[in-house]
Computed example of a mutant assay.
Amino acid sequence: MTLAPTQRLLDEAVAARRGIGAFNVLHLETAEALVAAAEQTGLPVVLQLSENCVRFHGGLEPIARATLAVADASSAEVAVHLDHAEDAELALRAIDLGFGSVMYDGAKLPFEQNVATTRRVVAHAAASDVLVEAELGEIGGKDGAHAPGVRTDPDEAARFVDATGVGALAVAVGSSHAMTERVAAIDLDLISRLRDAVPVPLVLHGSSGVSDDLIVAGIRSGLVKVNVSTHLNAQFTAAIRDYLEANPTAVDSRKYLAAGRDAIAREAARLLELFGSAGKDPNG
């Protein structure tokens, strides 16, 4: 199956009032695991490459082309997205490589500068029908740059979306990046007000720190795209630790990487089904 446009996947999720999982790729094994989860569940998935991932691999093209190839070969509905690009030029390159969507993250910039640079990315993306996600209102835990307690203002969000033409908006509602415990409290009332204020799908970053029940409640309040990275990374690492403890003489890295890959596939499948279940009547 060919790559799925992120815009269509989000539109379908909005229509069904369910969430869609957007999971970060760190290396080829992650991409393979996430696609396996989508195939197993029959649900769509968004594969995300972050600016940090690109830096780790020494450049965009090698890991991007590998991820696009894995997605393109899948029988599932798979979109590929650039996550948290603070470098606008990186976002432009991802658009040209065939990504279905990109996130330009100008949240550290003053409002007007964020608007101007985001509009530039949106203009480039429009020629290729690529969706642009942006961020307004800082999300905690991002390299210490985002102050805890910051929240996205609905009125400012409405002005930002109108001024930039973005197709999705990442909002600060109480989650925090890189959390290893699922204890974050997201503001459901604020999510509902943001949903009513802006005409584009809302994105939750830092979802690894949010419990299952609260994520489902957040989707029912208006969240659409739910980003998960740290939680899945923990599954991968724990499975590798277990394998090496059980097989102390192992030297073939494929054996323990396969254990990690399988662990991600299992948990990603569970999360896809959890996010998809939000569209069902809890009393039905």
Rank of each mutant, 00 (worst) to 15 (best):
R65P: 05
G167E: 08
I95V: 12
G149L: 05
L274K: 12
V122L: 09
L82V: 07
R18M: 01
N52P: 13
R270M: 03
L109Q: 13
A37G: 11
V130W: 01
H57N: 12
K255G: 05
F236E: 07
D105W: 09
A238R: 12
F56D: 06
L257F: 14
L47G: 06
N247R: 03
D162T: 09
A172N: 07
K280A: 11
G21F: 00
T41F: 01
R65Y: 11
V150F: 03
G174M: 11
R193C: 02
K225V: 04
A250C: 07
L136H: 07
H57K: 13
F99Q: 13
L47V: 04
A33S: 13
D162W: 02
A66I: 02
K142S: 15
D187N: 14
A71G: 14
G174W: 06
T67N: 08
V102Y: 08
L47W: 05
D83W: 08
A172D: 05
F99M: 15
V132K: 14
R261C: 01
E89P: 11
L43Q: 13
S277K: 12
F23T: 01
S253I: 02
S211H: 05
G206W: 03
A217P: 02
V78D: 10
D196V: 01
S75W: 01
E135L: 02
R195G: 07
L204W: 02
L97E: 04
A265K: 10
D96F: 03
H84R: 13
L34G: 06
V25F: 09
L190I: 00
V203R: 14
Y256D: 00
T2K: 08
V54W: 10
A76G: 01
A37T: 05
Q48S: 10
L34C: 09
A163M: 03
L272N: 06
N233C: 12
A22S: 08
L131M: 11
G58D: 11
E135Q: 07
A33E: 10
H57T: 06
E181L: 03
T2M: 01
E133M: 11
A16C: 06
S277G: 15
G19K: 09
S229R: 05
L60R: 13
E39Y: 04
A66W: 06
Q235A: 15
E51C: 04
K280Y: 10
Y243D: 10
F99K: 14
V228R: 07
G260T: 00
V46T: 10
V121P: 00
Y243I: 01
D105R: 09
A22T: 01
V224G: 06
E86R: 15
R261V: 00
S101C: 04
D129W: 03
L82H: 14
